[in-house]
Design a protein around this nucleic acid. Structure first.
Lengths: 112, 112
DNA sequence: CTATATACCTTGTACTTCGAGGTATATTGT
DNA sequence: ACAATATACCTCGAAGTACAAGGTATATAG
């Protein structure tokens, strides 16, 4: 077991999912691989993170889903709603603000 | 009340506090202002965040404190231990990894 | 002499990520 | 034919975490 509440991960699943689904419709199992890929292996989210996140996002109206049978198996494809686009924009702003703040704090050793 | 568990903030107080105290000893009330300053106003942490964080960091051996009377008032100054320096290094690594992953994910519109 | 700034602190709330475990069908290897 | 793996969905409990609000007390400023 990794430690719970790992640093800097709060909000990251939500941001990544919305960002990926903004570009194209995808299903859960596929998103597990896609997250790894688009972050250049830097971030990996398990199914225990992806599925609940997807459900929450759909519940609050950021995503909509449709079921699709593919070779005897059922996939649930998710895509962004208008609300999801707004949510993504806000999360990106939050991210950039915090990212800037921390960058500023980490540069300038000042004691050199 | 702001929403609980705000996005991207998990681990940020710990990182910021360790980073600032790495450069110089400070007391809690002073750190509230310092955090704002070193992040160029991008991030602001209240006393309800700072004090518990300081206590936790001291409890786990990352910080040491000494009390100092200043004009009839008592201040508790905190500074980094060897363990705190290691913890800071690890947090910085985590931060950079995630920051890189998200940057990669956010660039390339690809659908342009 | 009252209001504000300094300086410390605690409590409760409302989240969150994560691993582990569970079901079922299709595909691949032998 | 049969076993193992990959695909595809899901739930639950654990262990935190940041935050606002509220509380105490002393010094300084209006």
């Amino acid at each position: 077991m990794t430690q719970p509440n790992p640093p800097f991960m709060t909000g990251v699943p939500e941001l990544l999912l919305l960002r990926i689904l903004e570009q194209q419709e995808m299903y859960g199992y596929q998103l597990v691989r896609s997250v790894k890929q688009v972050t250049a292996e830097a971030i990996s989210l398990g199914e225990g993170v992806i599925y609940p996140a997807l459900h929450g996002l759909e519940r609050n109206g950021s995503l909509k889903s449709r079921r699709k049978a593919v070779g005897g198996r059922t996939r649930v494809y998710y895509s962004l709603t208008r609300k999801g686009k707004k949510r993504l924009a806000k999360l990106q702003d939050d991210w950039r603000r915090i990212q800037n703040g921390i960058s500023t704090a980490l540069e300038v050793p000042a004691h050199a």
